[in-house]
Amino acid sequence: MPQVDTILSRSDHIGTIGARSGIQRDTYSITPGLYCVGRPTGDSPVLVTANYKLTFDALRSELGGVDVWILVVDTRGINVWCAAGKGTFSTEEIAYQVRRAGLMEVVNHRELILPQCGAPGVSALNLKTACGFKGTFGPIRATDIKCFLASGKTADEIMRSVTFNLLERAALIPLEIFLLLKPFALTLVCLVLFSGFGPDIYSLDRVLLRGGSIALVTIMSVLAGAVLVALLLPWIPGRQFWLKGLLLGILVAVFTVLRFLPFVGWTAVIGMALWAMSVSSFLAMNFTGSTPYTSLSGVEMEMRKGLAIQIVSALLGLFCWLAGPFFL
């Protein structure tokens, strides 16, 4: 029986950075099965979790000084909530791991403590019929698990509510940036290459001036849409994400006009402003997937309008920007 430490090592912390930044996220999993923390006995509680190592580490690092079993189920290295939504953190999978680990012989009781966020995929009622163990939903966060166990397996309103505070939002930014790197670099190279075209066919001076300015505007729009929207989320007016992003994009657009109008002319500067707004708006809309409060129906609703406006604005913007040198 593998015994796990409740203090994370240096390599665990490095692994966390790898997963959070996206460098090593898709393969960050551990072997499913039964683990023990401290010196658990047949009466010790059994906590169920996913086999994403970031999840497993978050749980075990909160278990210092307690004796419990951890049953890790195979969610293909995905966290509990997302896996529950996708159906891999499921009643059937837990029942399967219970049988595989021979849990009936290990413990005397017939109860599994489930993470509350597993509820979209696990029916506590069906679990009993599937494997003989009754499911009890614990708190949302691993930080509350000790308190939950100490208070006779009860959770208060706060322990049962998700949060999305500044720190939790900031932790998501590295991954957002990492996922953007490739398309961002590709877009930037194309923009700079195309910036040289004009009435005299191609000029390097224009590449420097126009390429440099569109690159700066694009970087600012990405920062606005992917970083600032995440950090300032509750304080940006509006509910729809594409509008929140558009609002910050307008600020970038205003800066663009003030800063670059004397150098590139009206047509190109309007193009850059439109481009900035659509990039920021699109990236903000993409952030919906990282938040714990947007409904699929809501996202679909805002995308119908948002995406259409973003596409039109981006195409029109790029057209104006390319046409700029011909109208100067």
């Binding site: 509820a119 506590a124 993409n286």
Partner: peptide, 25 residues
């Protein structure tokens, strides 16, 4: 629309948007 309530309702009294994709753009 996470669906936790519907999944755990013993009498099927709750209906939530059954599209089980995540709520992301």
């Amino acid at each position: 629309e996470c669906g936790a309530c519907a999944r755990n309702c013993p009498t099927g009294a709750i209906f939530v948007n059954p599209d089980n994709g995540c709520g992301c753009a």
